[in-house]
Design a protein around this nucleic acid. Sequence first.
RNA 1: GCCGACGUAGCUCAGUGGUAGAGCAGCGGUUUCGUAAACCGCUGGCCGGGAGUUCGAAUCUCCCCGUCGGCUCCA
Length: 604
Amino acid sequence: MPDEVVDEAAEAGLPLEAPEEPSLEILRHSAAHLLAAAVTQLFPGAQYDVGPPIEDGFFYNFRLPDGRHFSDEDLAALQARTAELAAQHIPFTREVMPRDDARALFAGMGQDFKVDIIDRLGESVDAVGVYRTGDFVDLCRGPHVPDSGWLQAVKLLRVAGVYWRGDERNEQLQRVYGTAWFSEQDLDAYLERLAEAERRDHRRLGRELQLFDFDATAPGMPYWLPNGVIVLNELLAFWRDEHQRRGYQEIMSPLINEKRLWEISGHWDHYRTEMFVMPVDEQTAYGVKPMNCPNAMVVYNMRRHSYRELPLRLSDCDILHRFERSGTLHGLLRARKFQQDDAHIFVTEEQIEAEYDRIFEITHRFYSLFDLRYAFRLGTRPDDFIGDVETWDRAEAALLRILERHAGAGGFGVDAGEGAFYGPKIDIMMEDAIGRSWQMGTIQLDFQLPRRFGCTYVDTDGAERTPAVIHRVIYGSLERFVGVLIEHFAGHLPLWLAPVQCELVPVQDDAPEVMAYIESLQQRLNAAGLRAVVNDHHGERMQARVRDAELRKVPYVVVVGRRDVERGDDVVRVRDTRHGAQVDLAVDSLAAQLIDEVRARRPS
RNA sequence: GCCGACGUAGCUCAGUGGUAGAGCAGCGGUUUCGUAAACCGCUGGCCGGGAGUUCGAAUCUCCCCGUCGGCUCCA
């Protein structure tokens, strides 16, 4: 995503008119200028590239003298200097300058990036905007706040190395990220929002709730703990049920295949750097599968097929491994080991659109269950593609039509060049707790792999034809999906997914009649298919056990004591931890209510 | 992989050149209590790993591993 290229277009050109009231975007753009002014003061000779406003803040990219890098101490010093400049109420002044004059100005200051930006401007641009803040001069269209006194609620957040113009083949520049608001209160509210996001972080909650963990010997490869396996199994059971009734047939296949398979599929040439490869002797190497598709082709080819069988829907939930670069790993959201809820559907070309409709139906069924916000994105032909352009164009046109029908024109984004190497795709995108966007489900159209593997079916006229294949996942990866769910629900999973659905707490754990009753209660709930456990942690008071259940985000907690047993009416007090409510319920009603909630898979 | 930061008990963290600490968790005991933390005691550490500097290193330097935030890449 070379968004810097876009930003440059916004930076250079004739100045824009300032509105009556500066917007947050203007404020942040001005904050970026002030930061750059501080950098040029503290690091004489620093060259500045682009510094746009972004969501919640701004950044600015620099090349520091002598190849220096920003450290955290530098960040603190820049924060202090920026604050000083803000306190001085330095005006932002704008002027329009002939292009050649501006070029000479920036060339004279040794600002190579600005000269470069000017040189890459279109022919028609003959004048550009130049803004000054004290001694600091920038090529910019503005608009800006009147003076730096507006920039009191600015906080520099972090430093990062970034590739010039977003391309890793280029040199790495030094970027400073910051946030800016109209008031200290707004700034504090924003920082509090970040803190809240941190509390929802699935990596923290995953450990606290004992869902999964990691070990240093398997970076990026989650260990699923007993609680987490319950969540996974519930998601998969639901998935299998929904797919069986829609005509999917599940297969399982080897996790490793000889290199030859990956050569046929094209992964050896196009995906090898992301594969775990294991040499077994001088001649032979095995590749651990990063995708299920090649083995789905192998299964398809294990017998001959008739046109009557199509669409043939082979599903597959095997575990995949991808050798993701170390710096990209992020808990469950970016892992090296994950399980996809995969399927490969062999179709004739005429069947493609109808099959996509069916897949969209499944998608809505699943995503609406969780009250999740999601968006579609079309990924088109990448530079590194296999096959021919005409086939790609045809496939992309089909997906575009389908998307327009399901999401409406403009109801989806298009990411040029982001398709898989074998075909274009429709992705389902979701955001995590701090607003980062992740690809979840994906529906990919592929004319290449069936051809490479020689997949055929016998058509009505007896001729052998090659089917197309739709690769599709709904959850995406189970790991990523669970990660997003945890953050979405802040750990309070829907009842049907909760590892413990109901916790039973005795008031007096030394009273045999109480313990006998509570154990019978557990048996009744378990027999009804509910996951109920007794918390009789010895030596703790009832209050401590309730707190413990709260912290583990158990949806329902039932406290039972002598008074209940003596009353003998089978009514218990139920604590609903997600809604902070308590209610007296007959045990039968409690069971019925929970079963109903599980069956409906209500999100909360 | 690149830039920055971090790594001390199961967890959260203090300790910045001179004998490794706290809270929580765990274990033992006392307590049996009515909806978010009872009390007392006890365990628990190659201070991520390796090399170096130093009389002496958790602390300083270098290399490696892992983690976190970006970049790039992606389910």
